[in-house]
Design a protein around this nucleic acid. Structure first.
Length: 430
RNA sequence: UGGGGCGUAGCAUAGUUGGCAAUGCGCCUGGCUGUUAACCAGGAUACCGUAGGUUCAAGUCCUACCGCCCCAGCCA
């Protein structure tokens, strides 16, 4: 007997197959039993007619509880009444395990309850669909960089000091010394770029900020490319090509998923390069023209980002922020020393920042002065300064937050649903 | 860390001027040969977030505490 996955059930029309899965829901009608079986690839209705199976097999249907694991064999039959187009005419059922009373019923629940049962909630169609899109997006990201000659270089998780010094870090005891969980792989990618030319990393990053918004996690995943001999313009080219590529790939490979998530894909279909590029000064003008209160020189808040991005229906690149509000490693604009050669990508629909990056300071003395100005411990950055002693070159890169990007593409407004097991200020379990 | 909101059965909620704690889902029992979050009949299930207080009487009023949600700051 062939074992079939539901996603490719059409290949087995009129054949007898076995489905290995779980009971999602069931209904009954006299001598008929309707079992909704899911196997992780899809859901199919298995129809059990009393005349087609032995009495014990028919009785088993009434013992099955929600999420019981079952192996069901039957004939794959085309049926117009099925949303899948096919249903299974059951011949045999084997119980793997009868589930205890399942906490998540197919009705409404609150987010807190569902998050407490995140390990089970992942089985529900919407959540498992989001995971599929996340996977597609990660695979597209790797394909993009791999296809352009980048080398994947893994960055460490334990780090001796802050990368940026501005944000709060998680501190750990490292054999009697202090170590911190990384907040970015960037500094290590700069070293990697000097070794391989084009490097990227993909891994978890940690921020101990006490943020409780729908855009924040304490543990999130970033993909961070870094390229030697690339300036800010090249960085913006790379960023927009990358984002356009992954959106296109998700549109192609996740049509069903986006339908389940009820995502309006016409918005995503409009995404084409080049993206609008506006300077910080121009962005401030947009905010002021809309009558919002904003002090020139500050960083943008969430409402400011929304105001800027709602003028456009694709992501936009905002460049050259005031150097004073940016990290020490940002190179200053030769045309205006008060500005940094940095760029943020703001996604439309009020999603906000999904990319932050820019051109790095490549001059040893300027960088050293920056470290001191930010009151960072110079010793911890000696290895990083070496990169400016031994064949320093202009170089640029950026970091893209996976969860925010998945949220934007799927239309899920809270990042806690775009990562399998979110870590937030108020949540460490499951 | 500020501003706002919410804690009642396994889940989602209602609960009026303080007076026997209710409804839907899920669960259990039974019925139906085409159900689509099926339907019909019956049944079980509550330390009303915690601790005090006011009162003849508190889910309801008062005080403190705990937990959660939303928004903001910080950021990807």
């Amino acid at each position: 007997m062939q074992i079939a996955r539901i996603i490719e059930i059409s290949k087995f029309k009129d054949q007898e197959v076995t489905i290995q899965g779980w009971l999602y829901n069931k209904r009954s009608s006299g001598k008929l039993r309707f079992l909704q079986i899911r196997d992780g690839s899809g859901t199919i209705q298995a129809v059990v007619f009393k005349g087609d199976v032995s009495d014990p097999v028919f009785q088993v249907c009434d013992e099955l509880t929600q999420e019981s694991s079952v192996v069901v064999s039957g004939i794959v039959a085309a049926d117009k009444r099925s949303s899948l187009g096919f249903e299974l005419q059951v011949r045999d059922i084997q119980i793997q395990q009868i589930a205890k009373e399942y906490p998540i019923s197919p009705k409404e629940h609150g987010t807190a309850f569902l998050m407490d049962h995140r390990h089970l909630w992942l089985r529900s169609s919407k959540q498992h669909t989001i995971l599929k899109v996340r996977h597609a997006l990660i695979r597209a990201s790797r394909d993009f960089f791999d296809g352009q000659g980048f080398t994947l270089v893994d960055a460490p998780i334990f780090t001796p000091a802050a990368c940026e010094g501005t944000t709060t870090l998680f501190e750990t005891d490292y054999f009697g010394e202090k170590a911190y969980l990384t907040q970015s792989g960037q500094l290590y990618m700069e070293a990697a770029a000097m070794a391989v030319g084009k490097a990227y990393c993909f891994g978890p990053t940690f921020r101990a900020e006490k943020s409780k918004t729908r855009r924040h996690l304490t543990e999130f995943w970033m993909i961070e490319p870094e390229v030697a001999y690339m300036d800010l313009d090249g960085d913006m080219d790379l960023a927009e090509n990358f984002v356009a590529f992954i959106v296109q790939r998700v549109l192609e490979s996740c049509q069903e998923e986006l339908k389940v998530l009820e995502r309006d894909i016409t918005i995503l279909e409009k995404i084409k390069t080049p993206f609008p590029r506006i300077s910080y000064d121009e962005a401030v003008k947009i905010i002021h023209d809309k009558g919002l209160e904003f002090e020139y020189g500050n960083d943008f808040g969430a409402p400011d980002e929304t105001a800027i991005s709602e003028n456009f229906d694709t992501p936009i690149l905002v460049h050259r922020y005031p150097a004073a509000i940016k990290a020490f490693y940002m190179k200053k604009d030769p045309a205006d020393q008060t500005k940094a050669l940095c760029v943020d990508m703001l996604a439309p629909e009020g999603v906000g920042e999904i990319i932050g990056g820019g051109q790095r300071e490549d001059d040893l003395d300027v960088l050293l002065a920056g470290i001191k100005k930010h009151n960072l411990p110079v010793e911890a950055f000696n290895w990083y300064l070496d990169l400016r002693k031994y064949g320093s070159v202009p170089h640029s890169g950026f970091g893209l937050g996976i969860e925010r990007t998945v949220g934007w593409i799927t239309g899920i407004t809270h990042v806690r649903e775009t990562i399998p097991f979110p870590r937030m200020m108020q949540r460490l379990t499951p």
